[in-house]
């Protein structure tokens, strides 16, 4: 066991839990929750690698010498925004799907799709 990798391992557990929800759950909202967990864990991965021992937030100020790496923070700000944009679009699709099929369970939607053809 290497404590220096603890963060990354937990990130992987979270990521895989999210992925499991996406694959195994049929409810569309639940899938999106899983997707959200999946994305947040990747964000956690980046932020973890940006941390420097004994560092402080990357805002220049007198009296501080060591700063954590700002680059992963910048990248992840973008990733969070991309995530919420995707979620908004996905939820709009869920609302429309409910209007068209009367359910938000993917298995039921798939059954109806099969009957259509």
């Amino acid at each position: 066991m290497d404590p220096g990798l603890y963060n990354y391992w937990v990130v992987i557990v979270l990521m895989m839990s999210g992925l499991y929800v996406v694959i195994a759950r049929s409810n569309l909202v639940k899938k999106l929750i899983g997707l959200n967990v999946f994305q947040v864990s990747v964000i956690m991965f980046y932020i973890s690698m940006g941390k420097v021992d004994g560092g402080t937030a990357p805002i220049l100020e007198d009296g501080f010498e060591i700063y954590s790496n700002p680059v992963p923070h910048v990248l992840m700000l973008t990733a969070i925004v991309v995530g919420v944009a995707t979620l908004a679009l996905a939820l709009a699709l869920v609302v429309r799907l409910y209007g068209a099929y009367g359910t938000i369970e993917e298995d039921e939607i798939a059954e109806m799709d099969d009957q259509d053809t």
């Binding site: 909202v29 999106l32 929750i33 959200n36 947040v40 964000i43 932020i47 973890s48 940006g50 941390k51 420097v52 560092g55 402080t56 937030a57 990357p58 805002i59 700063y67 954590s68 992963p72 923070h73 992840m76 700000l77 969070i80 925004v81 995530g83 919420v84 979620l87 908004a88 939820l91």
Partner: peptide
């Protein structure tokens, strides 16, 4: 905790705010 204050601010506003409201 990991010094990413801007990211924390955004995640709180987005994840706990907008995403929850929309869901």
């Amino acid at each position: 905790v990991m010094d990413a204050v801007d990211v924390a601010f955004t995640e709180a506003a987005v994840g706990a705010g907008i995403s929850t409201v929309l869901m």
